[in-house]
Design a protein around this nucleic acid. Structure first.
Length: 840
RNA sequence: GCCGGGAUGGCGAAACUGGAAUACGCGAUGGACUCAAAAUCCAUUGGGGCUCACACCCCGUGGGGGUUCGACUCCCCCUCCCGGCACCA
């Protein structure tokens, strides 16, 4: 006998429910009926559920799957709770990978991008996500970036967008400038190449003007994870202090401006330090020998790569200048240095050094033989070096005896009174550099005229179209500069010969307002249609990866405030609640091509179906935690759905024949108990979703209900009437499907229809627990003796403390433990436990 | 170095406001079904002791201390892991 082998893997075996057919059918139904299309409706509360839109890199990865599965559960759940849910999707379509693909494979970025979008849109549809596809937004579309250009011009007119030459972060691999936020530990956020400093002209958004407001609102975003707010606060990096001038000995014309957060320690300033590239250094050079030494030092420092400068505990290098300054507080002469531990980019690029209260200054003073004077009395027994804590001022003239806070105020008053300085706040946050020397981005709508200079393009000439025909060689320099038809133009003001700006905008600009455009995706009268935006915004729930904690999430907050101040919206903040989902991990590492541990969503959907993939990514961990991918776990999720399918299919006749829902008194004891478990499940699932979006525990509760169903079906055969059994089975299954709907929408819809329903499950409301069904007649009480569980009692719900206590003391199993000891006291927690405390 | 987050069975994880530690899933073991396997269904599954067996007892949430009738949960100290920032004056 020859065994017939097939190519079918066990996964394809006939026992599996026909997920392919089911999923395709319901996706078609949802699409054809436009089931998730929404419009403004003042009759019901709105809910804007948004997931971070993807960059169309080619295909979705497991991180996307997780992100969009979470978002889809939230959207479908809220919809079933009666909200008018806006749940849109779109494409962050400008960016470097498209351009790099063009250079490598000769395909135009637009073609590459649109092909990817088509493929990824199909993938998202296969996941069964409930998007209103009529609102799809693609940022490389001129109808999209046109408005961004218009806002750029408004910002330019108000000085919020400006051009300057400065030292910027340059990625030699991407051949473009990067914003500070886009440099991670000295490396490019996208390609990880070492970033170098380069002097370039470019465009900036004045985010620093909003630093204070961005910081203040961090305290008014209770729906955001604390760690994201902390990261933003640190990034903004507000420090309050004073700025003042140090006179230079023998140079009445020159003085050195320094910034300090510790003006109270000024009497301990025993030297001062310039950043090596400080412009004043040149003017202070005494002779040619010094000029050579300074030049050599500057060269050495600039040779240091960013990585070297970041090294911890690197010895601080410095050069003592011949020029000297005067500490205005002590009237003493002090030496001047240039040193690599002072940065030109922060404060004034020069500091007063107080080694007694600053460890960096202490280290430097020791190395260069500068005296150290303590100006804050350290506590008795202090053996450390620089003392940073509070204490009374010493060696500090008129500040002596004051504590730090008070001494700061006094010192600043003194600076102001003497006209030397004033209070000052500095931020670590820098203005957002948005110029990119690349092709595939939104053109900056500025024209340079031979006569008028820098002029904004006229509104009626927008959009400034990104030309299609361009040579991309990846050699550096803006590719647009080679496109004569783009560059050569007429001045919008005087009509004379002019040329266009050839930098494009950072793609983070597009993602800073896409959530507004979803409210009115086709509006032709401006960036946003006020009624729609007022109705839908702010986003009620935003969901995305933690990697944007500072980048996208800070830029969007800034841009929202700018739009408010330009009068386009009334919105202070874009996102009320933020959920930052954890990474998808496999074999102990983040999924990546280089690690070879990627799982392709397409393969999974083909093998198990979208419902299974969604289910597993929701079940394996709560959303904010990292998710450990596990193939066996996916099979478990698949098994669970099959179990539901089999149950409903094998009981279909009974389920269809069932009468009305069973109620209260008519039920048998076993029936009442089973019905309680149904309604407890509703309660648990609802609470788990509402409180924390803990879908993993919600699904556990649903699994328990399925287990209870499997136990109930055979057990109920001869313990209750046929009518009761059927009615309970039907109530349980319908409840199950409604609870499951948001998680595994295709299967739930299919089985719902098979039960005989003619309308979509998503037209139905989320189930409510029946309070009558939840009532318990008796409760289990744990009996402890000295904190150890010794017995359990079943007690009527209304039982009094006295009664419970007596019952516990009389218990068979408790007696032996109490007999030999003396009962000291008895703690009774009604409905919970009894603890009998004995004396030794 | 600073700032967050975390450590619970063989594994992913539960446990409300301090009240039965390990729900749910995975894996494992045994049974039913089958010629056999797969699938499925049922049962067991923290470690140890004791027992023919049931019962029962001891230990147990990274480590040490504390508060409490009672601690995964609160307080103090320590170790390790993950993430962010990193000379910001």
């Amino acid at each position: 006998m020859v065994k017939i082998s097939t190519n079918m893997s066990p996964h394809d075996s006939l026992e599996r429910y026909p997920f392919r057919e089911i999923e395709a059918r319901w996706q078609r139904v949802w699409e054809e009926t436009k089931a998730f299309k929404v419009s403004e409706d003042l009759r019901c509360p709105k809910f804007y559920c948004l997931e971070m839109f993807p960059y169309p890199s080619g295909r979705i990865h497991m991180g996307h799957v997780r992100n969009y599965a979470i978002g889809d559960v939230v959207a479908r759940y809220k919809r079933m709770r009666g909200f008018n849910v806006l749940h849109p999707m779109g494409w962050d379509a400008f960016g470097l990978p498209a351009e790099n693909a063009a250079i490598e494979h000769g395909v135009h970025p637009a073609v590459w991008t649109h092909e990817n979008i088509d493929y990824m849109r199909a993938q998202l549809k296969q996941m069964g996500c409930s998007y209103d596809w009529d609102r799809e937004v693609t940022t490389c579309d001129p109808d999209y970036y046109k408005w961004e250009q218009q806002i750029f011009i408004r910002m330019f007119e108000r000085g919020l967008a400006y051009r300057k030459r400065s030292t910027v972060n340059w990625c030699p691999s991407c051949q473009t400038v990067l914003a500070n936020e886009q440099v991670e530990a000295g490396r490019c956020w996208r390609c990880e190449a070492d970033v170098i400093a380069k002097d370039v002209e470019g465009w900036f958004f004045k985010i620093t003007e909003y630093a204070d407001e961005l910081l203040a609102w961090c305290d008014r975003l209770p729906g955001w994870p604390e760690r994201v707010l902390t990261m933003q606060r640190n990034w903004i990096g507000k420090s309050e202090g004073a700025e003042f001038d140090l006179p230079v000995v023998g140079r009445p014309d020159g003085s050195i401006r320094v910034f300090t957060t510790r003006p109270d320690t000024s009497f301990g300033m025993t030297y001062a330090v310039f950043a090596p590239e400080h412009p004043l250094v040149d003017r202070l050079i005494a002779d040619e020998a010094e000029r050579a030494a300074v030049a050599q030092f500057q060269a050495e420092v600039s040779r240091q790569s960013e990585m070297e400068r970041l090294a911890v505990d690197r010895p601080k290098r410095g050069l003592r200048l011949k020029a000297r300054a005067i500490n205005p507080f002590t009237r003493q002469e002090i030496p001047l240095f240039i040193a690599d531990y002072v940065l030109m980019g922060y404060g004034t690029g020069a500091i007063m050094a107080v080694p007694g209260e600053d460890q960096r200054d202490w280290d430097f003073a020791k190395a260069h033989g500068v005296p150290i004077i303590r100006t804050v009395q350290p506590p008795a027994g202090w053996e450390g070096e620089a003392y940073l804590g509070d204490g009374p001022a010493i060696n500090s003239g008129f500040l002596n005896g004051l504590r730090v806070a008070e001494a700061k105020r006094k010192a600043i008053d003194w600076l102001v009174a003497n006209g030397i300085g004033e209070p000052r706040v500095h931020y670590r946050l820098r203005d957002w550099g948005i110029s990119r020397q690349r092709y595939w981005g939104a053109p900056i709508p500025i024209v340079y005229c031979e006569v008028c200079g820098m002029v904004a393009e006229k509104d009626e000439n927008l959009p400034v179209l990104l030309p299609r025909d361009v040579q991309l060689r990846g050699k550096g320099g803006s590719p647009l500069a080679d496109v004569a038809s783009f560059v050569n133009t007429a001045c919008p003001r005087c009509g004379r010969k002019a040329h266009r700006e050839t930098d494009t905008m950072d793609t983070f600009v597009e993602s800073s307002w896409y959530f507004l455009r979803y409210c009115c995706p086709t509006y032709a009268g401006g960036m946003v249609e006020p009624h729609a935006v007022n109705y839908w915004m702010p986003v009620d729930q935003y969901i995305g990866g933690i990697e944007h904690a500072v980048l996208h999430l800070l830029y969007s907050r800034f841009y929202t405030k700018v739009l408010r101040d330009l009068g386009l919206t009334k919105l202070d903040e874009p996102f009320v609640n933020l959920l930052t989902q954890g990474m998808v991990i496999k074999d102990g590492a983040k999924m990546s091509k280089s690690k070879g541990n990627v799982v392709d969503p397409d393969d999974l959907i083909r093998a198990f179906g979208a419902d299974t993939v969604r289910l597993f990514s929701l079940f394996a961990a709560p959303p904010e935690k990292d998710l450990d991918w596990n193939d066996r776990g996916v099979e478990g999720a698949s098994r669970f759905l099959n179990r539901i399918w089999r149950f409903v299919e094998s009981h279909l006749e009974e389920l269809r024949a069932a009468g009305r829902e069973p109620h209260g008194d008519a039920l048998s004891e076993a029936g009442r108990r089973f019905r309680r478990s149904i309604h407890e499940t509703i309660q648990r699932v609802t609470d788990d979703i509402e409180d924390q979006f803990h879908f993993n525990t919600a699904l556990s509760a649903i699994m328990e209900l399925v287990n209870a169903l499997y136990a109930f079906a055979p057990a109920s055969q001869d313990t209750m009437s046929r009518e009761e059994r059927r009615a309970l089975l039907r109530e349980a299954v319908e409840t199950l499907l409604r609870l499951l709907a948001a998680f595994a929408p295709h299967l739930a819809e299919e089985l719902w229809a098979r039960l005989g329903h003619r309308t979509s499950l998503f037209e139905h409301r989320w189930p409510q627990p029946d309070p009558q069904a939840l009532i318990r007649g008796e409760v289990l009480i744990v009996v402890q003796v000295d904190g150890k569980v010794r017995s359990r009692l079943t007690v009527a719900v209304g039982a009094g403390e006295q009664q419970i206590r007596e019952q516990a003391l009389a218990d068979q199993r408790v007696r032996p433990w109490v007999q030999t000891r003396q009962v000291d006291r008895v703690v009774v927690v009604p409905g919970r436990l009894v603890n009998i405390v004995t004396r030794q």
